[in-house]
Design a protein around this nucleic acid. Structure first.
Lengths: 246, 246
DNA sequence: CGCTGGATGTCGCAG
DNA sequence: CTGCGACGTCCAGCG
């Protein structure tokens, strides 16, 4: 760490000419800073899919990890983006400030062309802290493992993430009568997709064990939709209501 | 529209005191602008789940549609967020600048507490243009409908989004021998989940028609994983390779 | 790297 | 509003 303010201070430019704007963006990219731009731009993307976006005033963020985000006035998700790991370049082309972001595997390219830059900023984010999150599926699993009777009296968990030919089962165990019983856990209200998932695991286990093996499948979630409930019934599967918290 | 520059120009503050920072944020929120802040903050979230994030230097974006995004130096996704439709408030509390975002249904609350604000900006994004995207599942469907033989010689599409007790089938039709044939389309390489989906539709249709009805199920995608391929085989389902573009 | 499934998924559309 | 499935989903964990 030096005393050079460019090493840790925020730097900004308002209504810059293309040259100074380009210089500041390039400096920010070279020094692993977080760079933001605001101004009139078009956006072109080509990769897994392809898109075009006509001119408008938007907010662009370039992260030190190689991510790029283009935000309009609406929506939680960026209108265009590039994932972490991309290489960003900044150049001046025909009087426009052009940001180009590329990656390989898959080959993807994002080009943001600014006809006018209203603002450029270079920030130095720090990330000492990690997010503490609760209320996840992992919390629901912990709840069940520490108190299996919440699922059913006499239920005994024997393994988690047990492998089957159709994938790994969340919780694998036995009921009070010794029958193989598998749980599919969801942190929130579930639809038909979760039933299909549980059904695949149960069918795979019945094939994998004996032809006559009876395997119980229980969907554990706060609630189910009506269609999911009828699919469960058709497949001879069960449901237990349980939330990740409380 | 007036000549008041606050109505359309970008406004910024560098290293502001809490009072001026709060005023500018409040002005921005009141005038449907896009507001960004950068500085040292903690973040607390309570809603569908709950989270805490200790102090660090982060970038916050408040959108005119009510969305809120908190970005660290890493990741394409914000570390914390609030979806569009939320109500943002800005206040000074115990010398700190506090942004609070709320919504109902579900009841959710996000609190961002700045101990130090390095930068505040108010922008006026415009969104005249809409994104033109190609290479989606809809493009794959159009391709098949305009040239059904891409799936199989003699295939005749009869309906799209046809309803079954298990949900709507992407493409419903008949093969050259008059057998009911349903397609599940995916724009990219697929795994076991798509097989489960197709299987649910085929099983529902076989129940819905006659007990003796034979229904063919074809997964149409660029490629499949090995596990998906074996699940297809076990269920007597088929695969056709096709991409949304080219 | 590819596979797999979770996510405070988000988003758009239909009932 | 809920239900349902697509998404350039993103993302972590594991082989």
């Amino acid at each position: 760490m030096t005393d050079d303010p460019s090493e840790d201070a925020t730097r900004t430019l308002a209504e810059p000419a293309v040259g100074p704007a380009s210089s500041l963006v390039a400096d920010g990219l070279a020094s692993d800073a977080l760079v933001t731009l605001f101004g009139r731009c078009t956006v072109d993307y080509e990769g897994r899919a392809a898109s075009e976006l006509g001119p408008g005033d938007r907010h662009v963020m370039l992260k030190p990890d190689g991510a790029a985000l283009v935000h309009t006035d609406e929506g939680q998700k960026p209108v265009n983006w590039q994932p972490p790991g991309c290489t960003h370049e900044c150049r001046v082309d025909d009087g426009a400030l052009v940001i180009e972001s590329r990656r390989e595997t898959p080959d993807e390219r994002l080009e943001i062309r600014f006809s006018d830059v209203a603002h450029v900023a270079v920030f130095r984010p720090t990330d000492e802290e990690t997010l503490e999150l609760e209320g996840t599926e992992a919390d629901l699993k912990d709840r069940i493992l520490s108190e299996p009777s919440l699922v059913e009296s006499g239920f005994r968990p024997l393994a988690t993430e047990r492998e089957t030919p159709a994938g790994a089962v969340d919780v694998y165990g036995e009921d009070s009568e010794g029958r193989t019983t598998v749980l599919e856990l969801k942190r929130r209200r579930v639809g038909p997709d979760a039933v299909g998932q549980l059904d695949r695991y149960v069918a795979a286990l019945e094939r994998d064990l004996h032809a006559d093996a009876e395997v119980r499948g229980i969907l554990v979630a706060p609630s189910v939709t009506e269609r999911a409930r009828s699919l469960l019934a058709e497949q001879g599967l069960e449901f237990v209501s349980l939330t990740p918290r409380d």
